[in-house]
């Protein structure tokens, strides 16, 4: 391999890592809810779509960018509160499968509702971030991907600090460890779940904007969750750190696979390579790289 081939490989990997950050972003929305409610929130993709569609529709109606962002943020917060009140509270103490089915229904309601309110046409979303690549040491990096990764990273830092240093964050970690004990010592599960669903809504908003700017805002945006599933399997459903690392791994490996393995099988493997990785992980390490390690001594 000569120097230019090496640079090319690095360029592919970097591009993959940057899109991996965006996979991680979607996956974190799942992890937050999985940790408190023990359920895979099937509606996460619908929330991504709903957030992006609301934002883009507001902007198209001449609402200033910053105001549209704030309004959408508030709407996502209210949506989180409404879900806690109308879905989670009545189903408290039911089995995880019941909750899972409820989120499945929720996904349809949110998706349908979003399109009922804002229509079904495709919207272009311009965040004002230039997509021109720039060069560092001989490799080209997409400016948009870099900014998107930086935004995702900032969000992760904010979320991590929130859960590390605030009372609500401590309560959240307590509930994730032992829900019954948390109720018994007086932690209010309702409030914590409302906070977590709101946080998941904020994550959905950021993911929706970044993915929406890339793919256009339309119904299929809710399918970006399909990219998050292999990330969750690889990283473990209950680990934020796992979601980040797995997002990076999946992002880089699918791009490298496309370039270096693709030609041997006729190409087009980027779309499903992540699932092959996920399948291999399930066979070897079903809890994922970082999933639920029991802190206990024997």
């Amino acid at each position: 391999m000569d120097w230019f081939e090496f640079l090319f490989a690095v360029e592919v990997a970097v591009g993959g890592l940057l899109s991996g950050v965006m996979y991680a972003l979607v996956a974190i929305g799942f992890v937050l809810i999985y940790k408190t409610s023990g359920v895979l929130n099937f509606a996460q993709g619908a929330m991504v779509l709903f957030a992006a569609l609301t934002f883009v529709s507001l902007v198209e109606r001449e609402v200033p960018f910053a105001l549209a962002l704030v309004v959408t943020l508030v709407i996502m917060g209210l949506l989180g509160l409404a879900i806690e009140r109308t879905v989670l509270r009545p189903l408290a103490n039911r089995s995880p499968m019941t909750l899972f089915m409820a989120t499945l229904g929720l996904a349809w309601v949110i998706e349908g509702g979003a399109q009922l309110i804002w229509g079904t046409q495709v919207h272009a979303l311009d965040l004002g971030i230039s997509n021109a690549p720039f060069e560092i040491g001989g490799i080209y990096i997409s400016n948009f991907d870099l900014v998107a990764a930086a935004i995702a990273l900032a969000l992760v830092i904010v979320l991590t600090s929130f859960f590390r240093f605030t009372r609500t964050g401590l309560s959240f970690r307590a509930v994730a460890d032992d829900t019954f004990a948390a109720i018994a010592i007086g932690l209010r599960l309702n409030r914590i779940q409302a906070a977590v669903w709101t946080a998941a809504g904020v994550v959905a908003l950021v993911a929706g904007l970044l993915w929406g700017a890339r793919l256009g805002v339309q119904f299929s945006l809710s399918l970006v969750v399909l990219k998050a599933l292999p990330v969750l399997v690889l990283g473990g459903f209950d680990s934020i750190a796992g979601a980040i690392v797995a997002g990076l791994l999946i992002g880089a490996s699918e791009k490298l696979a496309e370039v270096y393995i693709g030609p041997f099988v006729g190409g087009g493997i980027e779309g499903w390579f992540a699932y092959v990785v996920a399948l291999a992980v399930l066979l070897i390490r079903p809890q994922g790289l970082f999933g639920h390690k029991i802190t206990e001594r024997f």
């Binding site: 401590l170 970690r173 460890d177 032992d178 948390a182 018994a184 010592i185 932690l187 802190t295």
Partner: peptide, 24 residues
């Protein structure tokens, strides 16, 4: 209540466990 089998929050530190009681 102090539950049977301790039921501490295992991944939290001892002090965080204590603080959780006051938050509750």
């Amino acid at each position: 209540p102090v539950l049977e089998g301790r039921r501490l929050f295992r991944s939290l530190t001892i002090e965080e466990n204590l603080v959780s009681g006051a938050i509750g």
